[in-house]
């Protein structure tokens, strides 16, 4: 049952990633694209966690934590950059 649940969950998360990718392509504004990237990194953490459960190791925890931290910092940095650029004009 658990292996079936992992397959179902991975499929759902992959569909979510494709939807994010679609928004990243069509997103009308720059904030939309940043939001899509932000959601993509969270979904990739989900994928890594699922792979960790699938392979039965806790080795991937550090990778997930690093992606969480770097993703947040990069989103904040991109927002700040766009805000500043707009403010200076």
């Amino acid at each position: 049952m658990l292996s079936t649940a992992i397959v179902i969950a991975t499929t759902l998360v992959c569909i979510a990633l494709i939807l994010n990718l679609w928004r990243l392509f069509i997103g009308p504004g720059r904030p939309d694209r940043i939001l899509a990237l932000d959601t993509m990194y969270i979904n990739s953490i989900a994928l890594i966690i699922l792979f960790g459960i699938y392979s039965g190791t806790t080795l991937y925890f550090e990778a997930a934590l690093l992606i969480a931290m770097l993703g947040f910092v990069s989103t904040a940095a991109m927002c700040k950059y766009i805000l500043r650029g707009d403010l200076i004009e």
Partner: peptide, 26 residues
């Protein structure tokens, strides 16, 4: 319990991305 948590979590992740894809404005 683990299977239910996994599927429910994945469904919520999918709903979040679905909202990102289909809702009308930013």
């Amino acid at each position: 319990v683990v299977s239910v948590f996994l599927v429910v979590g994945a469904v919520f992740v999918l709903i979040g991305s679905l909202g990102l894809a289909k809702l009308p404005d930013f």
